[in-house]
């Protein structure tokens, strides 16, 4: 709830920022600059599950839109972000963080992936997106910060890796308190690990049913939902953890895995991404 409020808030701020610039209409028509950068923490030694998932989601979304960008890794990406969320993009003078605000920012430039959806489908897509983000996102947070094993073996060394002593322990502890507070507000803190796994299983089940034997969730063409699910599924499948039950749960839904592999091939193993329509057509 809190989360969503913040999203809406930041989205509003972008709008006002744009209109303050006195060039709202001009901005919408302004072409996508060539020097757009996406900022995220260091992938190999620093980034954590949820940030990785979100970053991948935004990256694949931008590629789906056929927009060019470069990935910049910064150890202080979290603090550079205007809302504290990751990843964020810098497009000209604008700095926009998190998927939803980025989607609406790009929609203001006249580019979106949801034109082919009717109203009901759009509502559906929103619901599934929030399902994926809430359940999978929070599960990732929970595993990273509340599971002793993962916390000590993965999260702490990674989060503190960019700081010198004693900041590494201090800041990790501070972040842990922050995340714990958030999970408490969301009611996740009282869950056991098994309950979390169960939630993830339910969520994957729902997504898998919606996907059926297609490669995209709606009309065999890509939407934000595909990007979000790709981010989470790919991250959960490829991130090594002391306990790989999360990966095995996801793996038990072959159609999700297949869609994920397909998107990876389509958008990450080509030098440049083509436009959405082309990709959709290729598949058909």
């Amino acid at each position: 709830m809190d989360n969503r409020k913040k999203n809406i808030l930041s989205r509003n701020k972008i709008h006002t920022q744009m209109s303050e610039a006195g060039a709202y209409t001009v901005t919408t028509l302004e072409p996508w600059p060539s020097d757009v950068k996406l900022y995220q923490p260091y992938e190999v030694e620093q980034i954590l599950l949820q940030d990785q998932a979100n970053s991948l989601a935004v990256q694949v979304f931008l590629r789906m839109c056929g927009l060019e960008f470069q990935v910049e890794m910064r150890s202080n990406a979290e603090h550079m972000s205007p809302s504290g969320k990751l990843p964020f993009i810098k497009c000209g003078a604008f700095v926009v963080a998190d998927l939803d605000p980025i989607v609406s920012f790009i929609a203001n430039k006249g580019i979106n992936l949801t034109d082919h959806l009717d109203a009901a489908q759009k509502a559906d897509m929103r619901a599934y997106m929030s399902l994926a983000n809430n359940i999978l996102g929070n599960a990732e947070l929970y595993i990273s910060w509340c599971d002793e094993n993962v916390l000590n073996e993965v999260t702490c060394p990674r989060y503190g890796s960019v700081y010198s002593w004693p900041l590494n322990t201090l800041l990790t502890w501070r972040k842990q308190k922050q995340v714990t507070k958030k999970l408490t507000a969301l009611g996740w803190i009282t869950k056991t690990l098994d309950e979390v796994y169960e939630d993830v299983d339910h969520c994957c089940n729902a997504l898998s049913e919606r996907l059926g034997n297609h490669l995209y969730f709606f009309n065999d063409r890509c939407t934000e939902l595909d990007a979000v699910v790709f981010g989470h599924v790919f991250t959960l499948l490829t991130t090594p953890l002391p306990d790989n039950r999360l990966a095995s749960i996801v793996r038990s839904y072959p159609n999700l895995v297949e869609a994920c592999q397909f998107l990876e091939k389509a958008f990450f193993q080509k030098p440049t991404a083509k436009t959405t329509d082309d990709d959709g057509d290729n598949f058909n």
Binding site: Q17, N76, H79, M80, V95, Y163
Partner: peptide, 21 residues
């Protein structure tokens, strides 16, 4: 701990946000 003063903080300053010792 250096944090951005507002959303309009210029990017060269934003790049330096974060913790240092």
């Amino acid at each position: 701990e250096l944090s951005c003063h507002s959303r309009t903080t210029t990017f060269p300053v934003r790049e330096q946000a974060g913790h240092s010792l």
